[in-house]
Design a protein around this nucleic acid. Structure first.
Lengths: 256, 256
DNA sequence: TAAATGTTGTTATCACAAAAACAACACAGG
DNA sequence: CCTGTGTTGTTTTTGTGATAACAACATTTA
């Protein structure tokens, strides 16, 4: 008996992040399958204890997700799922925009001193966050950008950003392959890393080193499976290490 | 000392509906005011117990809302609030669309028998839900629409819906005033209800009765303050009662 | 140098509230 | 009578909130 791709449990998970509890989700899903059902029917269909069905439906009613009949036994009708989810989303969006406004105000007001990033190494998690910070970093380049690039994603976005730099910013890229057409602005050097050490820089591995103006370094590590982690630093030791690493790559491995 | 319009507590409320806990919200807000702070500083700024700051920041890091330094003491940096909230919203939206798809499939698949609404009276809560169901109801009118209308909102939307009906559907409205220009299609009768019984049908009260084809009735009650409640029924007794009510209004009160 | 002090990061423990799960009861209708 | 409904409690569980204690390390002080 093949389970549907999204069994009730999975749906419940999605609904929970919209502010519903497990029981609320289960009962609502059950009610969709049996509009006009009684509390007992919903209990049987959803597996929720019968006594719990009543308070749960009360909450769902207050959230405007079900309507209730005035008969005995009480019968219940679900709000159409599209309307229901739009309703929940709208409520969340309201909070989101308010939060965004408030937080931005707080963030802008806070005196952010030219902070002592100089000696620190920062961990950044989350693909989006890494992408944002990376492009931000590259956009601010004044003199040079040095890149070691074994990262499948981000090709086009990266190039676009690099091309938007001022003309006097020198851009060097070391990579194993570069499928996209490469404008003249960007100096590309092909280098194959040694795959003798077990893991090839294939699909399972990805990463990159980005050195900006010889003053800022961002290192991206990870794989598609586990997600990415990035390190960012302006610490001199950190920069020295990865500049050396970059030169090492440039001179050591065989050109393609 | 005047509190800002949105103190930290209020912001925390908004953030909670985006999936953060109280502590996560407090620490994040504190961190916005002091980028690059240490755990102890955040403890002092946010009021969150120092020991709790570490797991909280760990969770925030997993949610990609902060980056962490590798120094001792650890220092933390917030993701910019716009990016952070966009990130949270995108995650929720993903769940929402998946839930919508799944639920719609469930809802469509469920054999919805020509359900025995006939003897039931349904309670509907929530302004949006009431509006949706009401317009839905009116759109399906085949022969006649009878309305008692003491409801300030919904004027234009209501008229638009009524005008979209087929020509042979007779539309009668009883109301105390009708500010909008009334097309010929709609027969409007002005009746002032007795205001002797205490409450006038003024701003504090609002309501309406909608009888469709003499077979479906929706009654909307409530006030702007407490929100609205609606009753819907196809029960013959219910319909008889409100049809009588309608005729009563039409014949009893003095014309304006 | 050695003891005292303070800070950081970590762990364990407890309190508390909401949700989940179960038991019991009054009551209506057949 | 019995069945099923609606309601009321009570217990268990879970996640969060809150406090205390501890080891590791650095700093100060005698």
């Amino acid at each position: 008996m093949a389970e549907p791709v999204s069994p009730a449990g999975s749906i419940a998970e999605s609904l929970k992040s919209l502010g519903l509890t497990k029981y609320e989700a289960l009962v609502y899903v059950a009610l969709l399958q049996a509009s006009g059902a009684t509390a007992t029917e919903l209990h049987e269909l959803s597996g929720v204890p019968r006594a719990s069905v009543y308070p749960v439906l009360e909450r769902l009613s207050q959230k405007h997700l079900v309507s209730v009949s005035h008969t005995t036994p009480k019968r219940f009708n679900p709000v159409k799922p599209d309307d229901a989810i739009d309703l929940l989303m709208r409520s969340i969006e309201t909070d989101a925009t308010r939060a965004k406004a408030d937080l931005s105000r707080v963030y802008a007001q806070s005196a952010r001193p030219a902070r002592g990033d100089q000696e620190l190494i920062w961990s950044i998690h989350g693909d989006d966050q890494i992408r944002t910070r990376l492009l931000e970093l590259l956009r601010d380049a004044q003199e040079s950008v040095q890149i070691i690039f074994y990262w499948d994603h981000l090709k086009q976005e990266l190039i676009d950003t690099l091309l938007s730099l001022r003309d006097n910013v020198r851009v060097d890229i070391i990579t194993d392959r570069f499928t996209a057409p490469v404008p003249d602005r960007i100096h590309v050097t092909l280098r194959i890393p040694p795959d003798s050490h077990g893991i090839t820089a294939g699909k399972c591995m990805a990463g990159g080193v980005f050195i900006v103006d010889g003053k800022q370094v961002m290192v991206v590590m990870g794989s598609k499976e586990e997600g990415f982690t990035a390190l960012y630093s302006e610490a001199t030791g950190f920069i020295r290490f990865f500049t050396m690493y970059w030169n090492f790559f440039l001179s050591w491995f065989r050109p393609q």
